[in-house]
Design a protein around this nucleic acid. Structure first.
Lengths: 81, 81
DNA sequence: TTTGAAGTAAACAAATTTGTTGACCAACTT
DNA sequence: AAGTTGGTCAACAAATTTGTTTACTTCAAA
């Protein structure tokens, strides 16, 4: 896996975490919205997993944002670019 | 795989094809833009494959559209919803 | 007719995601 | 102290994507 992709994964995880915390919901609650468990979400937030497009859209919908918003890494607070 | 996901995959494929044809580029040319071959793109367009988020973004960038645009199935001409 | 380009599909190994379980830690509560 | 909650991580099988190759078809051009 190249560096570009690794950075992408880390940032996507941070973005999911950020949006989730903005909404004051727990990993388990977000997971439940898409029929998964907390470990499933934790893998994206902390373990650099790369979801399929379908899961990405499901997460975005659960967070009430568009895919673009979820993928807009410029919105990361700790945006160590 | 449930029906919702199957529909998603088919529509994503149609959307990729549509945007690609709008730009008058071939499968092989689009593929080359992201360092892949024509069969790789054909799998999304015709064989219902579900790309990872990273590949989805790469395809969107190659097509010069946002992820939202690529995922906006309401823009499908043949939108047998 | 032959050649090449573009699209399509199957097959295969390798890598990764998905789905699930078990376990651990820190913080807070009872 | 014991129990609960939220977060984290490792491990495993199963399913899927990724990467690559081979091959077939159609169409158009030479």
């Amino acid at each position: 896996m190249d560096k570009v992709q690794k950075t992408f994964r880390i940032k996507l995880g941070r973005r999911i975490e950020q949006l989730r915390e903005d909404r004051h919901i727990e990993q388990g609650a977000l997971a439940a919205m898409i029929g998964k468990d907390k470990q499933f979400i934790n893998r994206y937030e902390r373990q650099g997993a790369n979801p399929t497009a379908f899961i990405l859209v499901q997460i975005a919908e659960a967070l009430n944002v568009t895919a673009n918003d979820l993928l807009d890494f410029s919105k990361l607070k700790t945006s160590k670019d």
